[in-house]
């Protein structure tokens, strides 16, 4: 199915969870925060939140800033 991840189209398997998506990208789930269709996905639910076709996902982390 098709998702939008950080503004870019991305294909993933049906039934994929947020945690599965992060792992498939190669990200450490502990170091990022995720928003799904403008709703925060709590870290504790990464493994149980199942993605749906058309979801708009934002994955953010801390970078240097003033």
């Amino acid at each position: 199915m098709q998702l939008t991840v950080n503004g870019e189209p991305r294909t993933c398997d049906d039934g994929q969870t947020v945690e599965g998506l992060l792992t498939s990208i190669g990200l450490d789930p502990r170091k990022v925060a995720v928003e799904r269709n403008r709703e925060i996905v709590p870290k504790s639910t990464f493994a149980t939140t199942v993605l749906a076709a058309g979801d708009v996902i934002e994955i953010v982390h801390f970078i240097g800033g003033g």
Partner: peptide, 19 residues
């Protein structure tokens, strides 16, 4: 220390992170 919040670079996730 102040930090900013930005999109992760999903095309190169191995980039070093501030943390």
């Amino acid at each position: 220390v102040t930090v900013a919040v930005r999109r992760v670079n999903v095309s190169d996730p191995s980039q070093p992170m501030l943390v």
